[in-house]
Design a protein around this nucleic acid. Structure first.
Lengths: 258, 258
DNA sequence: CGGAGTCCGTTACACAACGTTACGAAAGCA
DNA sequence: TGCTTTCGTAACGTTGTGTAACGGACTCCG
């Protein structure tokens, strides 16, 4: 069972659920994050209330998986605080499985309460159920404001994931090429190593070969993208190589909301 | 614990929830109804699919507590049918508590799945959680009549199962194509794997497990549906492919009552 | 200047996922 | 019974992407 997705042939970007995983046990957290990512979501880690707050305030979070026992802190309290201000769905996760403990979770506003240890597939199903209800009940799925990137005469529209050449001709990028372009556009003038690019691509979905050992895949991918967006691929002006480091998007990018 | 609070933040009075209790065991049904009524809701009895249908079509129902085993009938099937036409929240209740049985419940669109025997107080808490989320996310939307789906100029009426093209011409879909469209409409923007689609179709679709081994059946079915509802089937804008995942209904769907 | 090692660009290839078509079996209908 | 529709299966074509191999370019060091 897969949770989400993000790109399809033609390179359209989709809304990927962003799930905040809150647990102070690093192993547990990593396990959950890895599993959720394998099933197609963007899973973000947090270990305490401050980190939760930072994520919620800072970026979009579609769902919170909240452990009850967080060292000194109390997940129930965090849940209650969140619920006062936010509509973000919350699923409590806890080793405390007694009925009255579960009811405490629901009492502070949790949408679901799952006892540890749990079957990951079942967790996934319940995550999906909560996300599904959230989406279903808004009669029309609300669209986020999208951004348009411009660089060197080129245009990239984040919503439609379409790339237009300077002559307004649409260029077809593959999924992976689109993902690479997105990563680069998000980090202009910042050299990125192959590992950084690879993990970024994996977070945004796609495959998880994980074995970055003989990883010339990024080089080939870069080459292919250059063939499509560089005027002269042999002498790249946009996607440049930093020898011994990685690649840079070495050009100014104008970002505008639509 | 009270099920409904008289007032919420902002001072508006909240309606008393109407809960439909579906169970063919009369004692069980009565117990649940009495308990729910004691806790401030309007609980209505139903013992089979026809009674459920009558209640849903006839009056306002805020939540359905649906037993899985209903004599000859299957609660899962009823759940799926409801989910295709209605947004009413559904909590499955069942003596079948194995993980895969729970997951089947979530797969057909249940909002929660509670195993018998259960703690009544915990049931109440979960009922509250589901109702709470429903109110939070859709304070204005009625969930009463048959739904009409609109996407990209197309119209699908859940009750008559008719599909109208943008030019108001009725398009004939086969039974299986219609079922697929229903599944997709119920999960817009959520990628579905072939297994998920197949099991969803099978719950209502009489067809047998059909050994999903060489299962390209879904692909072919998707292709056929695309040929009917996509302007350009070669470049699908509605029913998109998520490589390595499955398919998505990647378009905003407006749901309205009729 | 030159040589060796490293890093990178490029091409070809293999493979997996998906689209498409044809065909036949089963079910519905006259 | 014969015709039509529906739908799963099989087979083949297409596309996207990682791997491997080769060769060029750069760097360090003498």
């Amino acid at each position: 069972m897969k949770l989400h997705s993000q790109k399809v042939k033609g390179g359209k970007a989709m809304a990927i659920p962003r799930i905040l995983v809150v647990d102070d046990d690093m192993d547990m957290r990593q396990m959950m994050i890895q599993f959720l990512r394998q099933n197609g979501s963007i899973a973000l880690p947090a270990a305490n209330g401050a980190e939760v707050r930072a994520h919620i305030d800072g970026g979009r979070v579609d769902l919170v998986l909240l452990d009850v026992m967080l060292g000194d802190e109390n997940g129930l309290k965090i849940c209650q605080e969140l619920r006062r201000e936010q509509d973000v769905p919350i699923i409590m996760v806890s080793a405390l499985s007694a009925d009255n403990q579960r009811m405490e979770g629901y009492a502070v506003g949790a949408d679901d309460y799952i006892a540890k240890p749990f079957n990951p597939e079942l967790l996934l199903a319940r995550v999906k159920a909560v996300l599904s209800r959230t989406r279903r009940t808004s009669s029309l799925v609300h669209r986020r404001n999208t951004k348009t990137f411009r660089f060197n005469g080129w245009t990239y529209d984040a919503k439609s994931s379409q790339v237009l050449s300077p002559d307004k001709i649409q260029v077809a990028l593959s999924r992976r090429e689109t993902a690479l372009l997105q990563v680069l556009l998000a980090n202009p003038h910042i050299p990125l190593t192959r590992e950084e690019i690879a993990t970024s691509l994996d977070v945004t979905g796609e495959t998880q070969p994980a074995n970055e050992a003989s990883g010339r895949a990024i080089d080939v991918l870069v080459g292919r993208l250059r063939n499509k967006i560089e005027a002269n691929p042999k002498d790249p002006q946009i996607l440049k190589t930093e020898r011994g480091v990685g690649y840079v998007f070495a050009i100014d990018v104008a970002v505008s909301d639509t």
